[in-house]
Amino acid sequence: SIVTKIISIVQERQNMDDGAPVKTRDIADAAGLSIYQVRLYLEQLHDVGVLEKVNAGKGVPGLWRLL
């Protein structure tokens, strides 16, 4: 499923980069989806406690990390 793919992308990127959070844009590119589509999935995963959003604010790139 797309959700499983997104989780594995975040996991893979974090492992490659010493646990650093992953940008929404990088996840979207790797999943082959638009940034808006991916954001909806990321928000859902956040709501159920799978991911945390590391930063927030208007015009700030979203950074995500697995919990």
Rank of each mutant, 00 (worst) to 15 (best):
1 S>Q: 11
1 S>C: 15
1 S>T: 10
1 S>M: 10
1 S>F: 11
1 S>A: 12
2 I>G: 02
2 I>M: 12
2 I>W: 11
2 I>K: 03
2 I>T: 06
3 V>C: 14
3 V>M: 14
3 V>F: 15
3 V>G: 04
3 V>T: 09
4 T>Q: 13
4 T>I: 13
4 T>S: 13
5 K>D: 04
5 K>I: 09
5 K>Y: 08
6 I>L: 08
6 I>A: 01
6 I>G: 00
6 I>Y: 00
7 I>S: 01
7 I>Y: 05
7 I>L: 09
8 S>H: 11
8 S>L: 12
8 S>V: 07
8 S>M: 13
8 S>K: 11
8 S>Y: 09
9 I>F: 14
9 I>Y: 12
9 I>V: 07
10 V>H: 00
10 V>P: 00
10 V>K: 00
10 V>S: 00
10 V>M: 15
10 V>G: 00
10 V>N: 00
10 V>W: 01
11 Q>S: 11
11 Q>Y: 12
11 Q>P: 00
11 Q>W: 14
11 Q>R: 14
12 E>V: 08
12 E>G: 06
12 E>N: 10
13 R>F: 12
13 R>P: 03
13 R>L: 15
13 R>E: 03
13 R>D: 00
13 R>S: 03
13 R>T: 03
14 Q>F: 05
14 Q>N: 06
14 Q>T: 08
14 Q>C: 05
14 Q>S: 09
14 Q>W: 04
15 N>S: 12
15 N>D: 10
15 N>K: 11
15 N>P: 02
15 N>Y: 10
16 M>T: 07
16 M>I: 09
16 M>C: 10
16 M>Q: 10
16 M>R: 12
16 M>D: 07
17 D>Q: 15
17 D>A: 15
17 D>E: 13
17 D>K: 13
17 D>G: 15
17 D>S: 15
17 D>F: 15
17 D>C: 15
17 D>I: 08
17 D>P: 06
18 D>F: 12
18 D>Y: 13
18 D>N: 14
18 D>M: 10
18 D>G: 14
18 D>K: 11
19 G>H: 06
19 G>E: 04
19 G>T: 04
19 G>A: 05
19 G>R: 05
19 G>K: 06
20 A>I: 06
20 A>N: 11
20 A>Q: 10
21 P>E: 02
21 P>A: 13
21 P>N: 03
21 P>T: 04
22 V>D: 00
22 V>F: 07
22 V>K: 02
22 V>W: 03
23 K>Q: 08
23 K>M: 08
23 K>V: 03
23 K>H: 10
23 K>E: 07
23 K>N: 08
23 K>D: 08
23 K>R: 11
23 K>C: 10
24 T>C: 04
24 T>E: 14
24 T>G: 03
24 T>P: 05
24 T>Q: 04
24 T>F: 01
24 T>S: 04
25 R>A: 12
25 R>W: 07
25 R>F: 06
25 R>Y: 05
25 R>N: 07
25 R>I: 09
25 R>E: 14
25 R>H: 07
26 D>C: 04
26 D>Q: 05
26 D>V: 09
26 D>S: 04
26 D>T: 09
26 D>M: 05
26 D>G: 01
27 I>G: 01
27 I>V: 06
27 I>C: 01
27 I>T: 01
28 A>F: 02
28 A>C: 03
28 A>N: 00
28 A>G: 03
29 D>F: 11
29 D>R: 12
29 D>S: 11
29 D>G: 07
30 A>D: 09
30 A>I: 05
31 A>M: 14
31 A>I: 14
31 A>W: 03
32 G>C: 06
32 G>Q: 06
32 G>F: 03
32 G>A: 06
33 L>V: 05
33 L>W: 02
33 L>M: 12
33 L>K: 01
34 S>A: 07
34 S>V: 09
34 S>Q: 06
34 S>E: 07
34 S>P: 14
34 S>M: 05
35 I>K: 03
35 I>W: 07
35 I>N: 15
35 I>D: 06
35 I>R: 04
36 Y>T: 12
36 Y>K: 14
36 Y>R: 13
36 Y>C: 12
37 Q>H: 10
37 Q>L: 15
37 Q>Y: 08
37 Q>I: 15
38 V>A: 14
38 V>M: 05
38 V>R: 00
38 V>P: 00
38 V>F: 01
38 V>E: 00
39 R>S: 13
39 R>E: 14
39 R>Y: 11
39 R>H: 08
39 R>P: 00
39 R>F: 09
39 R>M: 12
40 L>A: 10
40 L>K: 13
40 L>W: 14
41 Y>R: 02
41 Y>W: 08
41 Y>E: 01
41 Y>H: 05
41 Y>S: 01
42 L>Y: 01
42 L>V: 02
42 L>H: 00
42 L>W: 01
42 L>C: 06
43 E>R: 06
43 E>T: 06
43 E>Y: 07
43 E>D: 08
43 E>M: 08
43 E>W: 10
44 Q>S: 10
44 Q>I: 14
44 Q>Y: 15
44 Q>R: 14
44 Q>H: 15
45 L>P: 00
45 L>N: 00
45 L>Q: 00
45 L>I: 06
46 H>V: 15
46 H>C: 15
46 H>I: 07
47 D>I: 12
47 D>N: 13
48 V>G: 07
48 V>E: 13
48 V>P: 00
49 G>V: 04
49 G>F: 03
50 V>A: 04
50 V>K: 05
50 V>T: 04
50 V>M: 07
50 V>N: 00
51 L>E: 05
51 L>D: 00
52 E>Y: 04
52 E>G: 07
52 E>V: 09
52 E>N: 02
53 K>P: 06
53 K>G: 03
53 K>H: 08
53 K>S: 04
54 V>M: 05
54 V>N: 01
54 V>F: 04
54 V>P: 01
55 N>F: 12
55 N>W: 12
55 N>M: 09
55 N>R: 08
55 N>C: 14
56 A>Y: 09
56 A>E: 09
56 A>M: 10
57 G>T: 07
57 G>L: 04
57 G>I: 06
57 G>H: 07
57 G>V: 06
58 K>F: 08
58 K>G: 09
58 K>V: 10
58 K>R: 08
58 K>S: 11
58 K>T: 11
59 G>N: 08
59 G>P: 04
59 G>W: 05
59 G>E: 06
60 V>Y: 11
60 V>N: 13
60 V>K: 14
60 V>L: 14
61 P>I: 10
61 P>K: 11
61 P>F: 12
61 P>A: 14
61 P>G: 15
61 P>D: 15
62 G>V: 15
62 G>H: 14
62 G>F: 13
62 G>M: 14
63 L>E: 14
63 L>Q: 09
63 L>A: 13
63 L>Y: 10
63 L>F: 08
64 W>Y: 02
64 W>K: 03
64 W>N: 02
64 W>H: 02
65 R>I: 12
65 R>C: 09
65 R>K: 10
65 R>W: 13
65 R>H: 05
65 R>Y: 13
66 L>D: 04
66 L>I: 13
66 L>M: 09
66 L>G: 02
67 L>K: 14
67 L>E: 05
67 L>Q: 09
67 L>R: 12
67 L>N: 12
